[in-house]
């Protein structure tokens, strides 16, 4: 009888713990409920942010910006002059908490973006940063050995192509403007946006030609 009771108690205990959130989830619950009580955050704002960044705001925004720059030279110039202000023209909702600078790739220049300190990233136009962007390995190696890092992403650069590495900060983030691939003459913005990958706007992808991968 005593054995049964002990076993029963253990099972009940296990069942109770099976839906107990993790330690981190409980700490977050504690923080959020305290901050809401103190009026420092609003729970609807938190929910809206989570929903927007989980489902809506992603690299598609950035791809639309790049496609527009490829088809509208005046917009491209404004994007290069002042990206923060140029992007406001597109009327995306969502608050950008930092300035944005566009860096343009060419046949002789390749741009690569990193945040060596933490994970600063233009999330209002690219969504939440990919996991590899936040790793210590990428944050340290992108500056030290950019060509090796690029090679691991499948980007092999000719020796004459210079690599510029841009270190993002809390106040200034970067968007890479990739080269428009050949063979896309006459394409509209929507078709072009489909070619633009998230990684190409960070600099870990370069060749966006439509024939890539089909040869």
């Amino acid at each position: 009888m005593a054995t049964f009771d002990t076993k029963n108690i253990a099972e009940v205990h296990q069942a109770l713990h099976s839906h107990l959130p993790s330690d981190s989830a409980l700490r977050v619950k504690a923080l959020e409920s305290l901050l809401v009580e103190k009026g420092l955050v609003n729970s609807e704002t938190i929910d809206a942010w989570v929903e927007a960044y989980s489902e809506e705001i992603g690299p598609k925004r950035g791809a639309q910006i790049i496609a527009k720059a490829w088809t509208d030279p005046a917009f491209k110039q404004r994007l290069l002059d002042n990206a923060t202000s140029a992007i406001k023209e597109l009327d995306y909702h969502g608050h950008a908490t930092a300035h944005l600078k566009t860096v343009e790739n060419s046949t002789t220049v390749h741009n690569l973006v990193v945040c060596t300190l933490c994970s600063c990233y233009p999330f209002s136009v690219l969504g939440v940063a990919p996991n590899w962007y936040k790793t210590a390995a990428y944050r340290s190696r992108a500056v030290r050995e950019p060509r090796s890092v690029l090679a691991e992403f499948g980007v092999t650069l000719a020796d004459e192509v210079k690599v510029h590495v841009w270190d993002s900060t809390a106040e200034l983030r970067y968007l890479v403007l990739p080269e428009r691939p050949s063979g896309t003459e006459g394409w509209n913005e929507e078709q072009l946006a489909d070619l633009v990958t998230r990684n190409s706007m960070i600099g870990t992808d370069r060749d966006l030609s439509p024939s890539k991968g089909t040869s």
């Binding site: 959130p21 993790s22 981190s24 989830a25 700490r27 977050v28 619950k29 923080l31 959020e32 901050l35 420092l40 955050v41 609003n42 704002t45 938190i46 942010w49 989570v50 960044y53 989980s54 992603g58 690299p59 598609k60 608050h95 908490t97 969504g127 939440v128 990919p130 996991n131 998230r198």
Partner: peptide
């Protein structure tokens, strides 16, 4: 994401970033 990668593995991860950005 559109590519099928996980943006967040668990809700609390998203909530941490959301609180930080809100603050």
């Amino acid at each position: 994401t559109e590519e099928g990668d996980a943006v967040f593995d668990e809700a609390w991860q998203a909530q941490v970033l959301a609180m930080a950005e809100s603050l």
